[in-house]
């Protein structure tokens, strides 16, 4: 349905093929979160991989930083409709974390957990093959608190609520378990190119 009198700013020119439907480009980096911004000192920080309720391996900040680091530059898409192109991250790929824990495919589903009690579900396949990392740096600097520092999950090909800020655990689950927003009306998978914003979209 055409809206009377609306022409819009245009769809991003030659970058339009990088902007999913219903999204608009931003130059800034908006901050969204459901509660207070946690303050986690790296000296207190730990990261745990679990199978169900059982911890398999726990890293402290220095042990985690000793894992192989990877740099990736990706476009990111927030369900609130902004997209940001060419964001530069550095962190530890999920397959490198699992290798260090001596794990391959304990199950097909993962719940990411965060220091503020947040959680979100991602199929394991979407975390492997260089698709996802636990990011420690953004644009060449330590990740700011507002953006999830000291560490956040980064799954850039899904809507950005899947990239859990202040992440502190990946938990393998036998079924695809809904996380915080998925229990509150948002889509279980969240593919921006299919506009999977809300439940059953």
């Amino acid at each position: 349905m055409v809206t009377r009198g609306f022409t819009g700013r245009g769809s991003g020119g030659d970058q339009s093929n990088r902007i999913p439907p219903g999204q608009h480009l931003v130059e800034n980096f908006p901050v969204l979160s459901a509660g207070p911004t946690p303050s986690v000192d790296p000296s207190d920080w730990t990261f745990t991989v679990k199978i169900g309720p059982k911890p398999v391996k726990v890293w402290d900040w220095s042990a985690f930083n000793a894992l192989p680091k990877t740099k990736i530059t990706r476009d990111i898409h927030c369900v609130t409709s902004w997209s940001k192109l060419d964001t530069a991250w550095e962190g530890v790929l999920v397959e490198d974390i699992l290798a260090d824990a001596g794990l391959e495919r304990p199950s097909d589903f993962v719940l990411a957990h965060s220091y503020d009690g947040y959680s979100t579900n991602v199929p394991l396949a979407d975390l492997l093959s260089g698709k996802a990392m636990v990011a420690l740096n953004y644009a060449g600097k330590p990740l700011p608190r507002d953006h999830g520092g000291p560490a956040r999950l980064l799954v850039p090909h899904l809507y950005f609520w899947k990239s859990a800020k202040w992440v502190n655990a990946l938990q393998f689950t036998t079924r695809d378990e809904a996380g915080f927003w998925e229990l509150r009306g948002y889509h279980m998978y969240g593919d921006p190119w299919r506009q999977q914003r809300y439940t059953n979209d």
Binding site: P30, L32, S33, G35, P36, T37, C78, S81, W82
Partner: peptide, 22 residues
């Protein structure tokens, strides 16, 4: 405002926030 609420002694777990984005 959240810092103010925390300084006033409120528990972070009872605070819900909504921030404008993009």
């Amino acid at each position: 405002a959240t810092d103010g609420a925390l300084l006033a002694g409120l528990d972070p777990s009872i605070i819900k926030t909504e921030r404008y984005g993009g």
